[in-house]
Design a protein around this nucleic acid. Structure first.
Lengths: 340, 340
DNA sequence: TTGAAAGCGGTACCAT
DNA sequence: ATGGTACCGCTTTCAA
């Protein structure tokens, strides 16, 4: 039996000791050379030998060992439960990543699908990130934040819809969005306003505050707010559209552009005239919303620039003494097109 | 000056030694208790004391230390340059994450924006992941794969459009998609076929093979394939539409549904009849494609089930001796609606 | 200019 | 049933 054990046996992962041996120097010297340690002068010939040896062995430093020794990491953890949806978030994520990398942080998204808030926080804490930026897909609790900070996180930043935690964090207030949409509809004379609540799990953290914002905006105006459950699909939209006439509504804010587009089409198929009978409002300003007729009115969301958020992370990491501030990181404004 | 040094000074991160001290036992015992080590019997009272101490201190184990000692991790690295776009990928990502977590892997997305293939591979290797699943956003080279394997990765799996690497990897062939779209258009009697190439950076890895597949499908049929550059925006679509009549094309495969929707609307605004004058074909089967009129024909892509891919990862990790197989993980089939 | 050695936090073997 | 301890890979003083 010529069992061929994989490299695990025949080619153990090279360590700095291997490099040292091959170069005929000590591990210390290897470390100095490969890190360009300024405080120490190593002769040029030695440097070359070390570098060649490292190259030859395909040496790659062991991040865990390094950070264990250093006592800290440069890791910024971005928890993700569901991959963020929509071009808005994608752009934001990419910007943030770029900006953090430029500041020499390692950006790691930790998949936390199916973990509850505190379990998730513990799992993150095991990686000893220097900062955690939660976009609110996982509901972080006060205890969760405490666990993270106790495990060495200098900055724990919440961008989620929920209120400030027991610690460092700032808020991206989703309520503004619902409020903005409803204010626009009220301004245009609508009084019976449906608010679509997505049936899909994981969106409650966004949809609930948006509904709350809608209610606040309508309070005292005599207008009626009517929550309407709908799933992301044509069937569900059709079902809702079929019972529309009985609802006595003259407007709807449909969570975001995608739900709005689905519902608008279903309403049209039902013979309902948009915007005369019903005004439709989305959110996110998706490009595709402009392709439908009538063009979809929407709430344009100014997400914080990734750059700015990265700078904030960096500031808090360098000086964690700051009081947890609350920043306003989002602006929302109505974009009137044709559907409202 | 009452400088208040943050917890870093006053409350160092608790270690298992702290737990041991507080519980009045040894570090070994702490480890046994907290890991439920089966090979060792610890008395119930002791277990309790240890657990209470850990709880009180808010102890969280240090993943780096643990994996350093263990000599391996359970980390599966998913490199991401741009956050994956589109519901198709989102679903796939989520499924994969779920499935891997169920197999007790830690899923980490490593942001590699702005890193070149080999730099990226080195950066990933520093984390010593047990597996790397690259969706092809970062072009992995043969050397990159070698670096990863040498650093202990048991499985390196490429889902990208590029060909098999020098090692373990399997291919999601994007050419099928272009081929499928064009075959459908040919079947319907079209002979002058435009292929939209997105101007956006980072998509070449997908668009080029799709174009190649389109060309292959058209070869020998007498049909003409015409690459057309277009950006993701209404202006660019309008520009392309304006010069359409001069192109002498009776069909277009527009990379994916989003570009297809943009272009179709622009063509309609130009007074061009879809599908009589021009047949339009997208890809991805986005829900929103069904909302336009005419409904968008598309290529439905059967992405490998995350579950299946996770099982493959696990199999390769457990037995890396396997020859790098090439699996076909994607099916593509045309979905005829109204625009073609 | 270079090397020896301590130690970061856990784990697991070997004693007791 | 528990404790002592070596060791994982790397950095960093201190000594030579």
């Amino acid at each position: 039996m010529s069992q061929t054990p994989e490299q695990s046996a025949e080619r153990p992962v090279p360590t700095s000791a291997d490099v040292a041996r091959l170069a005929g120097v000590s591990r210390a010297t290897v470390s100095y050379v490969l890190n360009n340690t300024a405080a120490v002068r190593i002769s040029e010939p030695t440097r070359c030998r070390v570098r060649e040896a490292a190259e030859e062995l395909g040496y790659v430093p062991h991040a865990a060992a390094r950070s264990l020794r250093a006592g800290h990491t440069r890791m910024v953890l971005l928890p993700t439960a569901h991959v963020p949806v929509g071009p808005l978030y994608s752009r934001f994520f990419n910007e943030l990543q770029w900006a953090l990398r430029r500041l020499d942080y390692t950006v790691v998204q930790y998949g936390s699908l199916g973990l509850d808030g505190d379990e998730a926080a513990r799992a993150w804490a095991e990686l000893r990130p220097v900062a955690v930026v939660s976009l609110g897909e996982v509901a972080l609790t006060r205890q969760g934040v405490a666990v993270l900070k106790r495990s060495g996180a200098k900055a724990v930043i919440t961008l989620g819809p929920q209120q400030v935690e027991g610690a460092h964090s700032l808020v991206m207030d989703q309520r503004e969005i619902g409020g903005c949409a409803v204010a626009h509809l009220l301004e245009r004379g609508r009084r019976g306003i449906g608010v679509v609540m997505p049936q899909e799990p994981g969106l409650e953290l966004f949809s609930e505050p948006r509904l709350e914002g809608a209610r606040t905006a309508a309070a005292g105006t005599g207008a009626r707010i009517e929550p309407l459950t709908m799933a992301y699909g044509e069937e569900s939209a059709a079902v809702l559209a079929a019972r529309w006439r009985g609802l006595d509504l003259d407007a709807v804010y449909a969570y975001n552009d995608e739900y709005a587009m689905l519902l608008m089409r279903a309403l049209q198929d039902e013979g309902i005239d948009i915007p005369h009978e019903v005004a439709v409002m989305g959110a996110d300003d998706l490009l595709l919303g402009r392709l439908l007729r009538p063009r979809l009115s929407t709430v344009q969301i100014d997400l914080v620039a990734g750059q700015r958020l990265a700078e904030l992370v960096d500031r808090v990491v360098r000086d964690p003494g700051d009081e947890p501030e609350r920043h306003d990181l989002m602006g929302a404004r109505p974009l009137h097109r044709e559907s409202s």
